[in-house]
C-alpha cells in the first residue's frame, strides 16, 4: 500500500517549482499542516503567505498577488475554500481572470467523523458552475505530480481537490499516461463503461478487473478533468456500450455523474447510472467505512453493474 498522500506530492512539486521561479507563491489559512505545506513554508518563507483562519481573505489575497504576476497556490480545506470563499473564487479568480490555483485539501469525506461542516460534497457542482473555472480531481500520487507539473505552466485559475489520506496507486511509476484535459483509459471493454474521478478511480479500476474476470466486458475511464470534461474521450469510450456507470465522492447532484449524463444523453443516449454520496449528511466513519457503507467500492460497483444488466 502506498504511504504518500497526494497532498504531499503537491508540496514536493511546488517546492521544486519555487526553487526555480520566485513567482511561485503558496498561501494557507492556518492550513499549512493539513495541506502538507509546512515544508514549503519552512524552505521558502519569502514565497509563503499565511493569512490566518480567513478563507475569503485567502482567495482574494491570492488573486491580488496573481494580478501582479505571481503564480498563486491557495490551499485550504476543500469545504471552506469552495463554499465559504465561493464568491471570491467566482469574482476575484475566475471573473477577473487571475492565475490562482485553488487547492481543496481533505476533499470529499476525508475528514470522516468530523461531520458535514468539514465534508466537501458540493465542491464539484459549485466550482464547475463558475465560467472559466477548471475542476480537477487527480486519482493517485503519480497523476497528481503530472497534473501539477502542467498546471504550473498555465496562467488560468483552476480548482484542484485532493484527499487527505494516501490512496493506492492507480498507475505504475514508469507508466503514467497523462494528457492535460484528456481522460485516461484504464481498461477497454465492450459492454459497460465505468467513469470516475479522484479517489473513486481505484475502485472502478478494480471493479473493471473483477467484471472482466466474470465475463462482463468492462471499460474504465479516469475523468480527473471534470471540467473541462473530456467529451470526445467519453463518447469514444461509451460508444457501443450497453450502459455507463459513474462513481464519485460527491453529492448526487451537479457532479461528475450529472455532467457525464448530460453529454451521453445529448450525443449517444443510453442508460447512465450515477453512484455518489447520499443527499444527506453522511454516516459517521472513516473514508473507507463511508465508501463501503454506500457501495462506493469495487464490490458495490460490480453489484450495481450486474443488477443493472439483469434489469
Amino acid at each position: 500500500m502506498n504511504k504518500i498522500a497526494n497532498r504531499a506530492v503537491m508540496c514536493e512539486v511546488l517546492k521544486e517549482a519555487a526553487a526555480k521561479d520566485k513567482d511561485v507563491v503558496v498561501l494557507c489559512s492556518d492550513s499549512r499542516g493539513s495541506a502538507s505545506l509546512t515544508s514549503f513554508a519552512d524552505t521558502y518563507p519569502d514565497q509563503f503567505v499565511e493569512v490566518g483562519i480567513a478563507e475569503q481573505n485567502l482567495v482574494s489575497i491570492a488573486a491580488g498577488l496573481a494580478s501582479c504576476g505571481k503564480k498563486a497556490y491557495a490551499a485550504s480545506p476543500a469545504s471552506f475554500i469552495t463554499t465559504r470563499s465561493y464568491e471570491q473564487c467566482k469574482v476575484d479568480c475566475a471573473y477577473s481572470g487571475t492565475n490562482v490555483k485553488l487547492i481543496g485539501i481533505s476533499g470529499g469525506v476525508s475528514y470522516g467523523a468530523l461531520g458535514m461542516t468539514h465534508h466537501s460534497a458540493q465542491d464539484i457542482a459549485a466550482m464547475s458552475a463558475i465560467p472559466g473555472m477548471r475542476v480537477y480531481l487527480p486519482s493517485d500520487r503519480h497523476q497528481t505530480r503530472k497534473l501539477f507539473g502542467d498546471l504550473l505552466k498555465d496562467n488560468q485559475t483552476a480548482y484542484i481537490r485532493l484527499g487527505r489520506n494516501p490512496v493506492e496507486d492507480v498507475y505504475e511509476e514508469n507508466n503514467i499516461p497523462f494528457e492535460m484535459n484528456k481522460a485516461t483509459v484504464l481498461a477497454e471493454g465492450a459492454d459497460v463503461l465505468l467513469v470516475a474521478c479522484g479517489e473513486m478511480v481505484k475502485p472502478i479500476q478494480d471493479a473493471a478487473k473483477m467484471l472482466n474476470e466474470q465475463g462482463i466486458s468492462t471499460g474504465a475511464l479516469d475523468m480527473y478533468c471534470v471540467k473541462p470534461l473530456d467529451k470526445e474521450g467519453l463518447l469514444k469510450a461509451a460508444h457501443g456500450k450497453k450502459q455507463v456507470v459513474t462513481v464519485e465522492e460527491h453529492a448526487p447532484f451537479g457532479g461528475l455523474g450529472s455532467m457525464v449524463a448530460q453529454v451521453i444523453s445529448a450525443n449517444d443516449p443510453k442508460r447512465v447510472i450515477n453512484l455518489a454520496l447520499p443527499d444527506s449528511p453522511v454516516i459517521t466513519g472513516t473514508s473507507q467505512e463511508v465508501f463501503d457503507y454506500y457501495g462506493l467500492n469495487a464490490a458495490g460497483i460490480v453489484n450495481t453493474v450486474k443488477k443493472a444488466l439483469e434489469g
Partner: peptide, 25 residues
C-alpha cells in the same frame, strides 16, 4: 481597470495581495 468588482468587501483583500507582491518584488 485592474480587477473586476461589484460585490462588496473584495477590494481591500485583493489590494493586500497586490501590496504583498510589491513587497516581495
Amino acid at each position: 481597470i485592474e480587477m473586476n468588482s461589484g460585490s462588496l468587501g473584495h477590494g481591500l483583500s485583493v489590494c493586500v495581495g497586490m501590496a504583498l507582491a510589491g513587497k516581495m518584488d
